[in-house]
Design a binder for these strands. Structure first.
Lengths: 217, 217
DNA sequence: TAAAGCAGGTTAATATATAAACACAATAAA
DNA sequence: TTTATTGTGTTTATATATTAACCTGCTTTA
């Protein structure tokens, strides 16, 4: 138990970046220690869940004391591979793509959008911030030379699958898909969907059908 | 069983908009019937899960035939309240906010961003597409007069909680929160998070720690 | 230094979600 | 017709996740 290479539940893995960010915040504001209860209030996750999540990685805290912010932070930095810079490409420099290019992922993530791709002659050859935009014809070329295996997809829906087919051949491993299209990929490739319309619509559904949820909290 | 007002599992509710969109697509392309297997391939959800999801609403399909596209579509339109237009406000007309304003939620969602709010003098008074941008000082005033209870939050992180406190007083019921801040709200208000940095980081984590997932598929 | 109580780790209980299995009605084919 | 096939709706089984409960040991303070 608490084996280094043990598989952590997906739900836990998804919360790690959240914890990490708040620990960073605590560290910056000079806090030395923190309890699962404090963390819970800040990140809005049940304190028992937090302790459970942490304990998958072994005993990170001390009974009667809590967690040492610095220690936790260092540990998660390693766990989340925050030591080395992760390079990402973005395909489709439209409204949303441009917004993401301007979004500062580097700040406390050590992840950088290295290059952008588009087809529009106005955008190809330009720079958004310090990120160069190349023509989509050259996707394979640049992904290989820059050794990029993670792609943010913000192209129009009809272009999503054709582009994806090329990404598969270009040995991409992960796709963050902002298009409404459900991508067909081999099981070796991981796709995370962020479907804006679905998110909005499901929020509306919940509001109308689950009136004042958690009456008892 | 299959009671109209029965609470559907959250996981199911989140998939409904997805089903709905694809049914719309089928309808447009003139398809009359569809099986759970076909649907499964398109939306990338197990066919058994789809049948289960649908059966929460009663018997929508016919054995040996499948589902009638028109019937299903009509049913989900009602269920997802697609008959009446849902009005939404967007607060924070920055890069991301502007991108969302240009995003055509109306197309097959019957949801419209009615007004935007910002503090920048350049943006206040302008229009993005056909959406007017007002000053954030007037949030309460316009939300009330327009009877808007759903808000998309795309302000900078430090502004998130202060703005939210005002939204609570303005009787907002749902918030789609694009900021990294975890909002403190009473249990009567529903918040959905779309945390771009977390999404990207968790994708990276999965790639490094869950190598070629589903080897057996 | 001893007592009080805080707070982590862990086990057990509950809830939720997915996937598999199957019986049977409706269809299509022979 | 009759027979074979399809594909739903449902049940059962399995996997996953959350919440609560508890025990133990460290910290603190008197």
């Amino acid at each position: 138990m608490s084996n280094e290479s043990m598989k952590i539940p997906q739900a836990t893995a998804k919360r790690l970046p959240l914890y990490y960010r708040f620990l960073n915040h605590l560290h910056t504001s000079g806090k030395q220690r923190v309890s699962s209860a404090e963390l819970s209030d800040a990140v809005k996750v049940d304190s028992a869940t937090i302790r459970r999540d942490f304990s998958y990685f072994g005993a990170l805290g001390k009974k009667g004391y809590g967690y040492n912010v610095n220690y936790l932070l260092t540990f998660f930095r390693k766990t989340l591979d925050q030591d080395e810079l992760t390079k990402v490409a973005l395909i489709g420099v439209g409204n949303l793509g441009t917004a993401l290019l301007n979004y500062n992922f580097l700040k406390n993530n050590n992840t950088k959008i290295q290059i952008g791709f588009d087809v529009s002659p106005e955008r190809v050859g330009s720079k958004i911030g310090d990120v160069p935009v190349y023509h989509m014809d050259d996707i394979e070329k640049y992904l290989e030379s820059e050794k990029i295996q993670i792609v943010i997809l913000t192209v129009p829906a009809p272009a999503a699958q054709p582009v994806t087919d090329r990404l598969i051949k270009a040995d991409v491993k992960g796709i963050l898909n902002f298009t409404p299209a459900r991508l067909h990929v081999p099981p070796t490739i991981r796709v995370h969907h962020i479907d804006l319309a679905v998110e909005l619509q499901s929020l509306i559904y919940f509001l109308k059908h689950y009136p004042s949820e958690d009456e008892a909290l």
